[in-house]
Design a binder for these strands. Structure first.
Length: 425
RNA sequence: GUGGGUGUAGCUCAGUUGGUCAGAGCACCAGGUUGUGGCCCUGGGGGUCGUGGGUUCGAGUCCCAUCUCCCACCCCA
């Protein structure tokens, strides 16, 4: 079908745009409050950036990327996430030159190829922040606080903040060894997927939903118990700061970031009632990423939040935004000879800051009034031949039906007054 | 990528065992009120019944394929 959108994409229609304005405006507002500045990167990048920045063995790179070759033979990819591009821009423009830390936020579409379902699209939108240049656990807490503040301002309730530490390249191998040591006797009992994970990424076994695997892994050594002193202290500090900020969290040792570049803090925000995909955002620290992408070792931490899922959650919690279409005034003509006056008056109304429109389909007076009612318009200014001959117009309120005759020259000012009166009473 | 469900007017949906089955409500347009909306009445426009094959004298109704959307898995936002 020519008239159908590509699978997994959505049109955001005029009647729902206010919901998006609300979420986007809140994101910008709260970001600025915390000292983050907006950055806009391209929607496509060199494929290599994601291969290296996201990780070759991740599902995203292995089977979810929109990769294509352009006319110059370059391999490009529609960005599946926001962190790697921001790191690339950070390096390309030497943003560290302005002094660290560098705190950035972004808002925009991401692309992942997969089967669409509730809360999962092929093109979706994220609000994200990235902070470079500090390992201070207070910054971890700030980033998490920013996310929670954002949700609160939207009015979202019943959120669960899951928190974990995945350690660093020094302490992680130790945990891996201990974990494998523990699991080895049960290897044959694990599900086939987890048997494969045993060598590649035993951490993922914590995530398995298979009940047998869960039972086995229940007694396994968690990462937190194997953290080196530095990482252990960092994690403890993050928790202290969160407590200081009165932010509740759930320690979740099963929360895992699969990539090598992720270090220490990992977090995810869950909400119920939006389908099987309960995560509305996640993030963590990535002290190895900037270096992996060719920069000096600069630590970083950030998050990405899914806007569609947030909108779903707002809807599920009955926090719908009012549509907010409509117009203050509809200019209506009765009889002939008023067309030019109508165009002129319309311009005056708009100049006076009123939302105003007129009929462009040559409708009858009655049809124009119906149009005004349905638009909806708060007032109709009716240009009738008789009144116009005396330099006057009729201003009718659509709610009460009260109508008054006003000099044409004073009509815009009068409408303005009426509008303001309407707000107070 | 795997599995289940689904697909009839702009929207929400009826459509019996294949034979006026192409309908209703809402929406839209017009008229009832030759200068006034919201209620009511009357009338009207609008559908390749997702698409392509097949079975049949005959298919929206049966079969196959394909696409879409929905839901779940994998995984994530």
């Amino acid at each position: 079908m020519l008239t159908s959108r590509p699978r997994g994409t959505e049109d955001i229609l005029p009647e729902e745009i206010n919901r998006w304005y609300f979420v986007e405006n809140t994101a910008r507002q709260v970001s600025r409050l915390y000292g983050y500045r907006e950055i806009r990167t391209p929607v496509f990048e060199h494929t290599e950036l994601f291969n290296r920045g996201v990780g070759d063995t991740t599902d995203i790179v292995e089977k979810e990327m929109y990769t294509f070759t352009d006319r110059g033979g370059r391999s490009l990819t529609l960005r599946p996430e926001g962190t790697a591009p921001v790191v690339r821009a950070f390096l390309e423009h030497h943003l560290e030159a302005g002094g660290l830390p560098v705190k950035l936020f972004y808002l925009g579409p991401m692309f992942r190829y997969g089967r669409p379902q509730a809360g999962r699209l092929r093109q979706f939108h994220q609000f994200g922040v990235e902070a470079f240049g500090s390992r201070d656990p207070a910054l971890d807490a700030e980033v998490i606080a920013l996310a929670m503040d954002f949700y609160n301002r939207l009015g979202l309730k019943e959120l669960e903040l899951h928190l974990n530490s995945v350690g660093c390249p020094a302490c992680r191998p130790r945990h891996r060894e201990k974990l494998q040591e523990y699991l080895r006797p049960y290897l044959g009992d694990l599900c086939p997927t987890c048997q494969g994970r045993f060598d590649r990424n035993p951490l993922r076994i914590f995530d398995c939903k298979n009940t047998v695997c869960q039972e086995i892994v229940a007694g396994a050594p968690t990462i937190v118990t194997c953290l080196c002193p530095d990482c252990g202290q960092h994690f403890a500090r993050v928790q202290e700061y969160l407590q200081e900020l009165a932010i509740d969290f759930i320690l979740d040792e099963r929360l895992v970031r699969g990539l090598d570049y992720y270090t220490n803090t990992a977090f995810e925000i869950m909400v119920k009632g939006i389908g099987a995909q309960g995560s509305i955002g996640g993030g963590g620290r990535y002290d190895g990423l900037v270096e992996a992408l060719g920069g000096k070792p600069v630590p970083g931490i950030g998050f990405g939040l899914g806007l569609e899922r947030i909108l779903l959650a707002l809807e599920a919690q009955g926090r719908e935004q009012v549509p907010g279409g409509g117009v203050d005034v509809l200019v209506v003509t009765a009889g002939t000879g008023a067309e030019k006056v109508a165009v002129r008056l319309l311009a005056d109304l708009r100049a006076a800051g009123l939302k105003a429109d007129k009929d462009y389909l040559g409708r009858s007076l009655k049809a124009q009034m119906k149009y005004a009612n349905r638009y909806p318009a708060r007032m109709a200014v009716i240009l009738g031949e008789e009144e116009l001959a005396r330099g006057r117009v009729l201003v009718r309120r659509l709610d009460s039906g009260v109508q008054e005759e006003i000099p044409l020259d004073a009509a815009a000012a009068y409408c303005r007054q009426e509008k303001e009166r309407g707000f107070s009473g």
